Amino acid sequence: MDDGRVTDRLLAEHRDTWDAAVTHRFIRELFAGTLPDEVMASYLVQDYRFVDGFMALLGAAVATADNYPSRHRLAQFIGEVAGDEDTYFVEAMEELGAGDAGDIPDTSSTAGFRTLFAEAAGTGNYAAIVSVLVVCEWLYLDWATRESNRAAAPAGNGGYPLRHVHAEWVRLHDYPGFHDLVAFLRDEVDRAATRSPGDGAMAREYFRRTVELELAFFDETLPPAR
């Protein structure tokens, strides 16, 4: 690959899709507090469906990382997903009345994420794996911190929605440790993707697929206004 940050170039290649996801109608209504409960519940139900596959992907990242500091940070990340984020999912779905959602079918993008995580893990290629991870976390950091989204929040509330179930989802993707996590994942992609041309190609392919699925997931949850 050329000089410069790999992650900057990958983002530039998919800027239109990325920005469409980050500024999606779902996100704007989340910040504004106007997102219907049934839409938020559906989103969380579907998102929670692929947490299991995401944890397996993180396990594959730990297994394929080439140094102890990276393994250690990824292992911490597993604990974070299994901790506060899991608690949020369970409590938020209960508050929103999601109930027994076992009979609700997967959306096509949910199924797509499950397939993507399994395929990335199955490659045994660290560059492919961390390229999926960086999109999943960096894109969320972007929407959680983007000023145009924050401006949709009620005045006088520090750029956060008023209702806890909305505000906490934002906070989980905008705190110092999360910023540090995204910086770490970007560094890992930048490093792994430059080890060989094959690693660079894997990073590009899996980055693209993940960005496209992120936008599809929002579109299926709340179609863009016509």
Rank of each mutant, 00 (worst) to 15 (best):
V134W: 03
Y175C: 02
R15H: 06
W138T: 03
L139R: 03
G124L: 02
D174C: 09
T115M: 03
A12P: 10
I104M: 04
N157M: 05
V134K: 11
A75E: 11
L96E: 05
A144P: 00
R9Q: 15
E95A: 12
A167L: 06
E205D: 02
A144K: 00
V182G: 05
E147L: 13
G159P: 10
R186C: 07
A75G: 15
A82S: 14
G102M: 05
F218C: 13
A152C: 12
T221I: 14
T110D: 06
Y206R: 02
R191K: 10
F117I: 00
L185K: 08
T145A: 13
Y140N: 02
A203C: 07
Y48Q: 03
A183D: 14
T115Y: 01
H166P: 03
A20N: 10
V90F: 12
F54Y: 15
F54S: 05
A12F: 09
C136Q: 02
L181S: 06
A32K: 07
G177D: 12
Q46L: 00
S148D: 14
V170T: 05
T87D: 11
L172Y: 06
A63T: 10
E205V: 00
R5E: 14
H166F: 11
Y175W: 06
R25L: 15
M55Q: 07
L185F: 11
A111P: 04
M93W: 05
E214T: 09
A75K: 07
M202E: 04
A151V: 10
A41Q: 11
E205H: 02
V130R: 03
N157W: 03
P197I: 13
H173E: 04
M202T: 00
F178I: 03
F117D: 00
A111G: 14
T17R: 13
G53E: 15
Y160H: 08
T210G: 02
